[in-house]
């Protein structure tokens, strides 16, 4: 019995030491994932695809939804994914990040129209697959696809919601706030809104267009100026994610929120909260999830299976969130559409 226990002791000691030794031996490559912004948990290899997502805003809440979708796709497909971007809107910095991706011999780049055309074109010329989201460069030759809002559809949906609360015989006096106007995307977006609302029977007038610069404080200040200058404004169209909350902040400060119809874009937490409170009428959403998820899938399917989309410009799923569908819309945004087989 004593010998048996002595052997048991020796065995347990050897076992404990061996177990610890194995732990030490295994540490070389076991815990190496996660250092990349949107990469896989596996270590990179020479054959592994490398996708770089050059987002217009590195850590903006709405773009973080796209990041989540991108990372999910990278994990599912075993892609080494890098999520990069400037902290504030900067086309120059985005251009450098695209050039860096080309220099690093990335396999694909996903970006947005704030990024200038030339670096994206250089990337395409260097053999890098490029897919644009949210904002398109129509003159970018060779891009695989554009996934984004259908600006006409978005404008039409906005008008339809506004028309429910503005009588037909009442004139719509509108002010628009967007993030930037240096990009054609914002120009097109504004134009689409103007066109959609101009069909209103009671009349339509766009009195002012301001820029939030992707900053809520700036947006709030601009809206205060607008309300003071144009007290007749009754419809506020916010084409930047932070603009709707900035608008509500300003109107609350002036005590005129009840008199305004406020429309927003994007389903940020702040916008959804305001929607639940009834302070904004609706918010236009497009699947930012698919900006990341489906974009990565399409590029992957193109590189590995030579699949191409039927058309370059694709709606990523534009829809309007109201108090009626606020609890159910999210699942509708995560529907993946595969590219047709080659």
């Amino acid at each position: 019995m004593k010998k048996l226990f002595a052997m048991l002791l020796a065995f347990s000691m050897v076992f404990a030491m061996a177990a610890c030794g194995n732990n030490a031996a295994n540490n070389g490559g076991a815990d190496n994932g996660g250092a990349n912004a949107g990469g896989t948990e596996d270590g990179g290899s020479a054959e592994q695809l490398h996708f770089v997502y050059v987002s217009p805003l590195l850590s903006h809440p709405i773009w973080l939804i796209a990041k989540e979708g991108f990372e999910t796709a990278c994990d599912e497909l075993g892609i080494q994914g890098d999520w990069v971007g400037p902290q504030g809107l900067s086309s120059e910095e985005m251009a450098q990040l695209v050039d860096t991706a080309v220099a690093q011999e990335a396999d694909a780049i996903i970006s947005q129209s704030i990024c200038p055309v030339q670096p994206l074109q250089n990337a395409i010329d260097a053999g890098v697959k490029v897919l644009l989201v949210d904002g398109d460069h129509a003159d970018l030759d060779g891009r695989l696809a554009y996934l984004g809002k259908d600006l006409e559809k978005q404008a039409q949906l906005m008008y339809e919601e506004v028309a429910k609360v503005i009588p037909e015989d009442e004139k719509i006096v509108m002010s628009i706030q967007c993030a930037d106007l240096t990009s054609q995307f914002y120009v097109d977006q504004n134009n689409a809104v103007e066109e959609a609302f101009s069909q209103h029977p009671g009349g339509f007038e766009l009195v002012n267009t301001t820029l939030s610069k992707s900053d809520k404080a700036t947006g709030t200040n601009e809206w205060l100026n607008t309300f003071n200058t144009y007290p007749e404004v009754n419809v506020c169209i916010n084409l930047a994610a932070e603009a709707a909350s900035a608008c509500v902040t300003a109107s609350d400060e002036l005590g005129i929120t009840e008199d305004l119809v406020i429309v927003g874009v994007d389903d940020t937490d702040e916008n959804l909260a305001l929607l639940r409170e009834g302070k904004i009428l609706c918010t236009s959403v497009v699947s930012f999830w698919n900006y990341g998820y489906q974009a990565a899938y399409w590029l992957y399917q193109n590189i590995t299976e030579d699949r191409v989309p039927e058309q370059v410009v694709n709606d990523a799923g534009t829809m309007m969130v109201t108090q009626d569908n606020i609890d159910t819309y999210n699942e509708l945004l995560k529907v993946k559409v595969d590219l047709p087989e080659a």
């Binding site: 070389g28 490559g29 190496n32 994932g33 250092a35 990349n36 990469g39 596996d42 270590g43 990179g44 290899s45 020479a46 592994q48 490398h50 080494q80 860096t100 220099a103 690093q104 011999e105």
Partner: peptide
């Protein structure tokens, strides 16, 4: 570290 090694490959490309 394989991840870091892969990243170094990117620098080598640069």
């Amino acid at each position: 570290d394989s991840q870091l090694t892969w990243r170094l490959g990117r620098l080598e490309n640069m």
